[in-house]
């Protein structure tokens, strides 16, 4: 891809021994996850298995109980001890998150949804921010919608805008938590298409999804989580087509994967 020699590049995401308790209940029992630059990892598993909790801990929406998280070479938390504010912020700026229910800002136009953080977080000029936003909106097929408000968009359009909003900050890794679960089937395909496009551009992504065919197609690697542990992981096709662990097999049977 580039001229630099492939000297085992530093992983973008490094999670080791991640433990999370809610009250007395242990929800994550020591998760390890490493994502290389340009890699696409899908996380699948039954409801309550801890997939969202994993993403929320890694993106610093929930405090961890123990373990280590490094993002883009910055240590967010080491052995349960969080970094200082400044480092935390740095680490967080390396990642984006796309939610199941979009969470666009309803009082801002689509364009402003994409520019606000560029201007007030990254300190870009308004012209630069708008240029970047328009570029991304065009790619997302929303060029004509920049002055619309989120409530005027379809669910699929809202999710495309939300993805563009995350991309506008040039994250090194993008996390998705069931990005199509709030959408009907056609719109689901629309969003999966967008994510496919990002994968083709070598965007580093971790995607929690119930779309098994999509995960098999697009992900390089799949993690199967259940009961707060990674039960099985492996190359996408291999894991879907010939799972080794009984729990994985049972889950995939139920999902008709």
């Amino acid at each position: 891809m580039s001229a630099t020699p492939p000297v085992s590049p530093e992983p973008v995401v490094e999670v080791a021994g991640l433990v999370k308790d809610y009250g007395g209940l242990r929800v994550l029992h020591g998760i390890d996850l490493t994502v290389a630059r340009g890699e696409v990892v899908a996380v699948i598993g039954p409801s309550g298995g801890g997939k969202s909790t994993l993403l929320r801990c890694v993106t610093h929406l929930e405090p961890v109980t123990g373990g280590t998280i490094r993002i883009g070479g910055k240590t967010l938390v080491r052995d349960g001890i969080y970094a200082d504010r400044h480092t935390l912020r740095e680490a967080c700026l390396h990642m984006g998150l796309v939610f199941q229910n979009f969470n666009l800002f309803p009082h801002f136009s689509v364009l402003r949804n994409l520019t606000e953080a560029q201007i007030h977080v990254l300190g870009r000029t308004r012209e630069d921010a708008e240029a970047r936003a328009r570029d991304l909106l065009a790619k997302a097929g929303l060029a004509t919608k920049e002055s619309s408000y989120p409530c005027e968009l379809s669910g699929g359009q809202q999710q495309r805008a939300a993805i563009a909003r995350a991309l506008a900050l040039d994250p090194e890794v993008l996390f998705f938590d069931e990005p199509t679960s709030a959408l009907d089937p056609e719109l689901t395909q629309e969003i999966l298409g967008v994510i496919r496009g990002l994968a083709a551009e070598k965007m580093t992504m971790v995607i929690v999804t119930h779309e098994m065919a999509f995960a098999r197609d697009v992900a390089d690697r799949i993690l199967f989580m259940d009961g707060g542990v990674v039960v099985e992981q492996g190359p996408a096709r291999e894991l879907i087509d010939s799972p080794k662990v009984e729990r994985t097999k049972a889950f995939l049977r139920r999902f008709g994967g």
Binding site: L61, L97, V121
Partner: peptide, 19 residues
């Protein structure tokens, strides 16, 4: 989700509240 989306985008809590 509004607070969370803003936090993930890097807004400080004060920015999130006022903006």
């Amino acid at each position: 989700g509004q607070w969370e989306a803003a936090q993930v985008l890097g807004f400080t809590p004060a920015q999130t509240f006022f903006r």
